[in-house]
């Protein structure tokens, strides 16, 4: 792609999404924006960006930014964190919160909702309905299109094949034409909201668990620190933060300390 278009996109992503687009990531741009360019009948990604440069258009800019941050995700992504949730973290929280009988979980970059629904299924499977408890899962994403998709809870067979254990598929999904849809009792456990992590959060209750997996990599250094500072402020001091398996938190040890549970790393805020 043309260098001036890449530079323009870098600055757009930094200003409007707080996202760092590194040198040499042209392939990523082509992969992410190719489908949008085709759908909107542009000859190429370059044509799409050139148009946006010459005629600023809020709606197109939003679509470009959304397409750039959309990631592939799957149900029960990585086995170990979910194993740890089931074996250690939920039993621990259920004991600690026996007084308030409240559990709050936030899937902070929820994409099409798989992570939030995975947590809901895991709770339902292993801890039942927790009668008398108030359990809420908040799922947010920067993309409003993703939020609409996630609310629907409808997935292709290929998406279902990835990550959903078969016994959970038969219990918590129904066929809906060629799609599989998450059952209503699971969908009702999740509240979906559009939230841009790069800007100040709307009012949210203090969370017991926050998932911010594979999203911090998209932010530049300063924004990442700001996001983590806000996440720390929204997490209870005995809560748990999950980041992606490949994401290092060494630079933020003033904000969080690490807990190693079996093969899973998670983090607690320093207060």
């Amino acid at each position: 792609m043309r260098p001036e278009n890449f530079i323009f996109l870098r600055s757009l992503m930094r200003q409007h999404a707080g996202v760092l687009l590194e040198e040499g990531k042209e392939y990523l741009v082509l992969a992410r924006l190719g489908p949008l360019a085709r759908r909107e009948s542009w000859g190429s990604v370059d044509e799409l960006i050139s148009h946006l440069r010459s005629r600023p258009n809020g709606e197109l800019r939003r679509q470009v930014a959304e397409a750039m941050v959309t990631t592939e995700t799957s149900f029960f992504r990585d086995v170990h964190p979910f194993q740890t949730l089931k074996d250690v973290i939920f039993p621990d929280l259920i004991e600690r919160r026996a007084g308030s009988r409240t559990l709050r979980i936030w899937s902070a970059a929820c994409a099409a909702g798989q992570e939030a629904y995975s947590v809901a299924m895991l709770l339902k499977e292993h801890f039942g309905d927790l009668p008398g408890w108030h359990v809420r899962i908040v799922a947010s994403d920067v993309s409003s299109a993703m939020i609409e998709r996630a609310k629907l809870g409808s997935y292709s067979q290929l998406e279902i094949n990835r990550g959903v254990p078969s016994h959970l598929l038969t219990r918590h999904f129904e066929r809906d034409g060629l799609q599989w849809r998450v059952n209503e009792d699971i969908r009702q456990m999740v509240d979906f909201r559009q939230i841009n992590l790069a800007t100040p959060f709307p009012p949210l209750p203090e969370m017991d668990i926050i998932f911010a997996r594979n999203v911090l990599i998209y932010f530049d250094e300063n924004t990442r620190r700001e996001v983590l500072r806000r996440l720390a402020g929204n997490l209870r001091k005995d809560g748990y933060l999950f980041v992606g398996g490949a994401e290092t938190m060494i630079a933020y040890s003033d904000l969080f300390y690490r807990l190693q549970i079996d093969r899973t790393s998670c983090y607690r805020p320093r207060r």
């Binding site: 078969s166 016994h167 598929l169 038969t170 999904f173 129904e174 066929r175």
Partner: peptide, 9 residues
């Protein structure tokens, strides 16, 4: 079909 998956399980 969901019923097939269930039957296999």
């Amino acid at each position: 079909e969901r019923e097939r998956v269930l039957k296999a399980l």
